[in-house]
Design a binder for these strands. Structure first.
Lengths: 316, 316
DNA sequence: CTGAAAGCGCTAACAG
DNA sequence: CTGTTAGCGCTTTCAG
């Protein structure tokens, strides 16, 4: 495979001249430019981007840290990032952590290794203290709010959103309200959900919070548990429309009417929610991803709040 | 940021020695190794992977070409790839083409540029002739069958699957059968659908094939068109469960019973299909992705067929 | 066991 | 407008 000096030799010019035509510099005579161009075509030459990156110290590559690669919410953010990356001619590499701290740090090190220009963290497992040092090597933007000045944020005000939903559920006359979350209390999002719940409804009835719900199947199981409780909830807030869909399935399987016997509201406005007519709260995760990409590329440390919307359908 | 020679100087050894401890070579005295290790820790040093890649000519990075970044089918394959990549310690970069030929070639050039060790093509827009030359620079594996010896394949026998489904629909007594596809006849998949259809049912009634269906909304529109036909189809085969879901929605909106008034069958066994009780044909796209990853990493040019399954629910 | 030196392929002053 | 030259940060012979 030919390299720049082969081309230079064959075109009868110096490597700098070849480099100049490669980078569209002015001050190259038309003849030489043409000659070089011709040889490059003949040899089917392409510059070794690795060498270019090495010297430039920049890769036009952004990494996206996602905990799971099979979660609708993270997928949506990833899609947002991807949307923008195409426009701006960046490449995106996906970095799945499964919430493994060491893995996460390993990915962050790619910044230091000069493999990535920036990293977008959709969800993290390390403390910010562990992460901050890496901001010296490239931009790191978070899809969760943090007031740290070195971190750009494209986030949704989850707490406000949870508060809103619970308020909405309450306004519909519900008192016995249950909810599901993805992770346990180690997760900030779960903590916020619990906080908001308590603010609106007070203490959480035993059995009203079911964690580790990711899929429809998990939702189904959660539905079963919840609807078997002696003091059965009249409304359930699910952490995603698929989970909500599973709950719906179970409820229907025991001939409950929605929302008469049990009200259900999900999150992220996904197809299954549309199909089943489930109310949902749309956090506009695609926009979150798009904005995150912009922040990363512009090395901006701004805090951008993305608005959420409650989608009213008939399940509550 | 410290580099290898800084470390060497500070540890009082040569760069080669540092390089040796970096790469776990034997024949380094314990004292020197310890000294180097110590300085590396103090300086918080990590090697510049770009420089390493440059000299090694290998990146441990695989690219995945997908046409759209918001299509469930391609997402599933991507997830399969991601699953395996974590295990094998590879990074995955996502390359969205929107079926733009030039973009696709640009991505293939990354192989030549030494940015990628291999590329997985989930769907292509260029002819194989345009693609083959790039197999000289890294492994390229396809998620569509091709007999070209230089291309590894992890594929589903789409034609057989379409034949099977249409046969199944026919066995249920349907004669007026419509279907939807994503792309128009420029797409191989569409061509195969049409071919299989004709083999089972003969000519296609005018209006029975609706293309450019990607989302639920598209499905809804397709349902509307199809069910307004004078000779209305009694069964519809949708190219995905979300599209099927849209059709279902429309059918229900005009009070049709499924499958009594119209039978519906989708593809890929997605949540919405489960939620709506739609029969589906599961092409096991995640497995396709996993297998594709293995082929790419092993630089294998094998042809691996992944089996599909019909999921029987009550919509047909 | 260790170090010097020659690159990997390319860019960017610098001096014409 | 063009060529020379010195690196970018690392690996790998080749001699000790």
């Amino acid at each position: 495979m030919a390299n720049i000096s082969d081309i230079a030799r064959m075109a009868g010019v110096s490597v700098s001249t070849v480099s100049r035509v490669l980078n569209n510099h002015k001050y190259v005579s038309e003849e030489k430019r043409a000659a070089v161009q011709k040889i490059m075509n003949e040899m089917n030459y392409t510059p070794n981007k690795n060498a270019v990156d090495l010297i430039r110290g920049e890769t036009k590559m952004i990494g996206v840290i996602i905990p799971y690669n099979n979660n609708q919410a993270f997928d949506q953010m990833l899609h947002g990032v991807l949307n923008k990356s195409v426009e701006r001619d960046y490449s995106i590499t996906v970095l799945p952590t499964k919430y493994n701290k060491a893995k996460e740090i390993e990915y962050l090190a790619m910044l230091k290794n000069k493999l990535l220009d920036g990293i977008i963290i959709t969800s993290r497992s390390n403390n910010w203290e562990k992460i901050i040092p890496y901001t010296n090597y490239g931009s790191v933007v978070s899809c969760e709010y943090t007031d740290h000045p070195d971190i750009g944020c494209s986030y949704i005000d989850r707490y406000a959103s949870y508060l809103d939903v619970f308020q909405y559920i309450k306004s519909k006359g519900h008192v016995n309200v249950a909810f599901t979350t993805a992770r346990g209390i180690e997760s900030i999002s779960t903590q916020q959900t619990i906080g908001a719940y308590k603010e609106i409804f007070g203490e959480i009835n035993s059995g009203y919070h079911i964690s580790h719900c990711y899929s429809m199947d998990d939702g189904y199981d959660a539905g079963q548990k919840l609807l078997s409780l002696r003091e059965r909830p009249t409304a359930i807030y699910a952490n995603g429309d698929e989970v909500a869909g599973g709950i719906y399935q179970y409820a229907r399987s025991i001939d409950y009417e929605i929302p008469k016997d049990v009200a259900i509201i999900g999150q992220e406005n996904q197809p299954i929610g549309i199909g089943l007519g489930l109310s949902s709260i749309d956090h506009q995760l695609i926009k979150v991803g798009e904005q995150a990409f912009d922040l990363a590329v512009n090395k901006s440390k701004q805090k951008m709040k993305i608005p959420y919307h409650i989608i009213h359908r008939l399940s509550i």
